[in-house]
Computed example of a mutant assay.
Amino acid sequence: MTTENRCSAAASDGQTTLVAESYDRETDSIIRTYNFHAHDISGLFRALKIETFESWASYELDKLDIETLNSGYGLGIHHDGRVTLRMRSAVDEYPYLLHTNRELLLMLQGRKPLSVFTDEEPSTNGIPPLFPEIKFDAHVGMGRFVKDEYADAVDNGLHRLRWVFYALPEEAWRIRAYILLLETSKHSGWNEGFERMQGSLLGYSEQENDFHIEFQRMRIQRSA
């Protein structure tokens, strides 16, 4: 989604809709979402000491920031875990719960059979992975999940993309199916059929996949 589209999804009638998300400390998963409207967005950014608020970015808030939002907008955000702030975007229009940033909690609840993450292959520069790998790996060690990896060259072989899979033990077949999906799409290109299969492997229902596919079609039509 372009910055322009994200902004239009977040702003209307002279106000900007923002989303604060609080995370569970143990699973690093979103457990509550707070939507609110800001009429003076520049003033709010100054109060939160955010010099430049990018429409696509998510900003982690400290305790003082949270208190500023609670007192100014009556949100009642809990302080114990991590809290982030971002602009409302098109993904917030989905009528069902998206798994993004909720993967570990949903898997522990048995509501998600497979989680898939991508990152560049580990290097010596000490940059941590873009997902809570250590927290997931702890459950692999206890037998709650199975883990597998798949590497693929990108940018004409200059980089290698690392795919990391976690599945419930009885759902481990989904990992091989997902890798087959990736390998096949390299030859045929990505399409709606692959998109639907991906959603099913990740645990979305047929009705949720129907909405997602139609939503993507509408976005493409609007941007054309």
Rank of each mutant, 00 (worst) to 15 (best):
R160M: 04
F117L: 06
H37E: 11
I66G: 11
I30G: 07
G141D: 14
R160S: 14
A151H: 11
M107K: 14
T33Q: 12
T84D: 11
D28T: 14
F211T: 09
F53Y: 13
G193F: 06
L85C: 07
D24A: 06
H159V: 11
N5M: 10
S12Q: 05
G126Q: 08
N156Q: 14
L158Q: 12
E206Y: 09
I134C: 05
R102M: 12
I31G: 10
L98Y: 05
K147P: 11
E195G: 00
F211C: 09
N125G: 00
D92H: 14
Q109Y: 05
Y59V: 13
G141V: 13
H159G: 01
H79V: 13
V91S: 09
F117R: 11
E26N: 08
L202S: 01
R82C: 10
R46S: 15
P129F: 12
T17G: 12
S200M: 00
K147Q: 13
S42P: 04
A57F: 15
L98H: 07
L161E: 09
D24Y: 01
V83E: 05
G76R: 08
P169F: 02
T100W: 11
R196G: 02
E60P: 10
G110E: 06
H99P: 01
M142N: 11
P128L: 10
K147E: 08
Q221L: 09
L104S: 03
A177K: 01
